[in-house]
Amino acid sequence: MKRGFTVWFTGLSCSGKTTVSQGVAEELRKRGFKVEVLDGDVVRTNLSKGLGFSREDRDTNIKRIGFVCKLLSRNGAVAIGAAISPYRATRDYNRREIGDFVEVYCRCPLEVCIERDVKGLYKKALAGEIPNYTGISDPYEEPLNPEVVLETDKETKEESISKVIRKLEELHYIQPAKVPEYSGEEEEKIQKRLADLGYL
């Protein structure tokens, strides 16, 4: 059985967690892994339906996601958590519980997130319509020692995805991908050469 692990994306709303986590999931699936993404926004419509945004409810939500990640990881799957997860202590709790835990911090300045405002929630929060909104009226505690720091305001989506993948290779959670040595035409030539010699 493959060794399972959890990749945990944390960062402000609109910092790129969903985008990068989906790209990472896609790459890992291509490499033959079974992957589940537990996205904060989706989880709040089922697993954590009914929970609010008080500190207690947020902690419960993050611990539930962490619990599912732990079950998946120990059965050889890759679990990807992508949730704001603003409190350091709760993320660290999940790290301890899961063990094989790779924390990815999507660092992006608040102004850029506000500008992106994909869901229109920053606008509402700034207008005082949403209480306890991370970054506006609730704190976000940056990770102290994340395995990966993404700078999603400066990097392309592809660069961010490859940073995560490279770290997973470095940590031996996944094998480095094969980089093709030959162009298509060269590959054909070398295959023919080896086949002519009876080596293929």
Partner: peptide
Amino acid sequence: GFVDRYPPSMEVFIPTSR
């Protein structure tokens, strides 16, 4: 050997000095 495979995807490749 002159060919090998990458088990996660089962791609076959020609090993080189790299």
